[in-house]
Every structure is written in C-alpha cells, then in structure tokens.
Simulated scan of single mutants.
Amino acid sequence: MNTILFDLDGTLIDSMYVWENSIRHLYDLYHIPSDFEADKPHYFQMTYPEVLQNIQKKFMPQISMKEMIHEAADYIDSEYRYHVPLKPGVKEFIQTQFAQDMDMAVVTSNSTALTETVLNRFDLQKDIARIFSAQDLRLTKREPEIYQMALNYFQTEPQETLMFEDSAYAIDTARQLGIQCIGIVNEDNKSEMEALNVETINDFTQVI
C-alpha cells in the first residue's frame, strides 16, 4: 500500500450537520410545503448541488440555483472556517502516515476552497499532496474518472491504493477500478455499508 485517498465530509470531518442545517434553512426560508425530516433520507444519496436541484425542480422552479447557493454560502463558510471538527483520530492517523512517506489525497464532492479552509485550520494541508474536487472538476463520484485521476497523479495502481469513504455509491465506484475501500459507518449509512459487504470503522481511532 503506497497511496491513501480520503473523502472529506463525514470521513475526515464531522460536517454533515452543516449541509443538513443549510437545507433546513432553505425549507424554512422558502416555506417549502414538505417535511424536511421525511425528505432527508432521500438526500443522503445525493451531492449538495443535486439536493438543491431536486428541491428547485420539485418545489420552487422560480428560484434560481444561484440564489439558493447564495442563501446558504455564508453559513457554510463560517462553519468550515471556525467550527467543523475533525473526526476522532484523523490528525494522528494522517500525521503517522505522512511520517511513513505515504502518498495521500482528498477526493471530495466539496469545493477545493472549503477543503483547503478546513485542512489549513487543522494544519493538515501540508500532509495532503493533492485535493481532487468533483465540484470544481465538474465530475461526480458516481463515475470512476476522478479516482483514475488520483491514481494517475500518484502513478500508482488500484491494488496499491486504499480509500476511506462514508458514501456507499462512492465506494461502489472506486471498487470498479479495484481500489480497496474502508467505509466510515454511521447511523444513517449503516444498512448501505452492510449491503456493500465492505470493511468499516466508526472513526480513525480504530486504525491508529
């Protein structure tokens, strides 16, 4: 094993509440005639832009995506800049792997800017060789291209690569290339991880 790929949200950082709260804010702001708690499980299989597109299409086609993103942006940026915590054991694990000359990258659906913001806050940017942002690259983790880009960047093979990820669909995609995966399990994705028959951990204290 010479390369580790990390998802960001829900894997390295405990940030899912940020996205959940921002969507709840939109429900309240635009008086969306639906129960957010009932809709929430449906959103777990989507990226944030996909959730916004779904809301716009179903409930308020008159509101632009630009306006919706603007409404949520200040809250999201503030949380990443000042409040979002690391998952337990993350810093110790990354620093240990860096000391052992492991190549490491973040492969995320989030933006490069927010990823850099939170990594810099925890002094981890120097340990991560590259950020692959599906949002900025206009890709999706449902297709293997972004993972192939990471393999090409490090000039490594899938069987020499390990990925940590909390999204079942992303694990399924990476496995198509032969990348070994460890799922970060939580109450919301437990059944999906079990269906994948993938090795799981609750957090990085289990692999330090």
Rank of each mutant, 00 (worst) to 15 (best):
L52T: 06
H25C: 10
P158A: 11
R175M: 14
F154T: 12
P41S: 00
L119C: 09
K57T: 11
L139P: 00
L162H: 02
Q159V: 00
M65Y: 11
D14E: 12
Y43R: 07
Q148K: 09
L12M: 12
S111Q: 11
K190H: 13
G183D: 02
I4V: 13
A72C: 14
Q159Y: 02
I128L: 13
T115S: 14
M102D: 03
D28W: 08
P33L: 03
A174W: 04
F59T: 04
N21C: 05
N110H: 02
H83T: 12
F6R: 04
M16P: 05
V207S: 05
E157Y: 13
R130K: 14
D172W: 10
Y30S: 08
M16Y: 05
H70N: 03
T112H: 03
E116G: 11
D9L: 01
Y48V: 10
F6I: 07
M46N: 11
I4E: 04
Y82E: 15
R24M: 05
A38F: 10
T173E: 07
L162Q: 05
F132T: 12
H42R: 14
Q53E: 15
P158M: 12
F204D: 08
I13W: 07
D203C: 10
E143A: 12
Q206V: 03
N120I: 08
Y27A: 13
H83F: 07
K87E: 04
H70G: 06
G178E: 01
T156N: 07
A170W: 04
K91I: 06
N197V: 01
G183Y: 03
N110M: 00
T3Q: 00
T200H: 09
E187P: 03
D101Q: 15
H42Y: 14
E165P: 00
K66E: 15
T200I: 14
L86S: 00
A174C: 03
D77L: 08
H31R: 14
A113S: 07
E92Q: 15
Y153R: 03
L137Y: 07
T205N: 06
D14G: 09
Y48K: 05
A129C: 08
L114I: 07
V118I: 15
R121V: 12
Q95F: 05
N21P: 01
G10K: 08
M68W: 02
M1E: 04
L124A: 13
I208V: 14
N186H: 11
K40S: 00
S22H: 02
